[in-house]
């Protein structure tokens, strides 16, 4: 993406979601109480993670078509996605401690995130064990496509078939019972968009840095 406008928009949206997320009115629900505000900080991480992984998938497909530089982009987007997933996991664990009483419970959605992170860790291990750049682009591209499909199956399809403690159970695995409150909606969407833009920015900076470093060593 060209231009500077989105680099301004991203932080502004996140600042808005953080301040309004702490300050704005929320519905009073039993058990959840004030922890419902985690919706602004936890759920956007997964939305933006999926966006990053989708970008990674698209660049991996391009890399299989032997497009120059696509493999680097696929890698960096997957890394940013992994960072966002880690943040989502940490925020989710804090929330789970206060509502479920434990940092980790055995739940389809939690398993899904753990598996997603393991799949992408395997992707990084695969990349690091191949030296030759062209071969790495092909092997990692093939694995990344497989990984994305399995991730979607795991976090998008299987949780719908089983019971879960997680809010938003049945139907959309992300959320829906919060969604009823129209006060929360704009803040939530602002947070999702803001984090996607920040993720793009992080990935773009990393890609530029890597390109410069590679150019220097040659």
């Amino acid at each position: 993406m060209k231009g500077i406008w989105w680099k301004l928009l991203g932080p502004l949206l996140i600042l808005y979601s953080i301040s309004m997320g702490l300050y704005g009115p929320v519905p009073r629900l039993p058990i959840l109480n004030e922890t419902i505000r985690v919706l602004y900080y936890h759920v956007p991480m997964w939305f933006s993670m999926i966006a990053m992984m989708l970008a990674s998938l698209i660049f991996s497909i391009q890399a299989l078509g032997e497009k120059e530089g696509a493999d680097l982009k696929a890698f960096e987007f997957a890394r940013t996605g992994f960072l966002l997933a880690s943040l989502g996991l940490i925020t989710g664990m804090v929330w789970a401690r206060f509502t479920w009483g434990a940092f980790w419970v055995n739940d389809p959605k939690l398993n899904g995130t753990a598996v997603t992170m393991l799949i992408y860790l395997a992707y990084f291990v695969l990349r690091s064990s191949v030296e030759e750049a062209q071969k790495r682009a092909r092997l990692a591209g093939v694995y990344n496509i497989f990984a994305f499909v399995m991730m979607i199956v795991f976090i998008g399809i299987l949780p719908r078939m089983t019971d879960s403690l997680h809010p938003g159970n049945g139907g959309n695995p992300g959320f829906n019972q919060y969604d009823l409150d129209s006060n929360m909606r704009p803040i939530f969407y602002a947070a999702v968009l803001g984090w996607i833009l920040i993720g793009l920015w992080i990935s773009q900076l990393r890609i530029r840095y890597k390109k410069l470093r590679d150019a220097k060593t040659i």
Partner: peptide, 10 residues
Amino acid sequence: AILSIPLLYP
């Protein structure tokens, strides 16, 4: 094992 087991979880 590292590559295949996570893919087999589902």
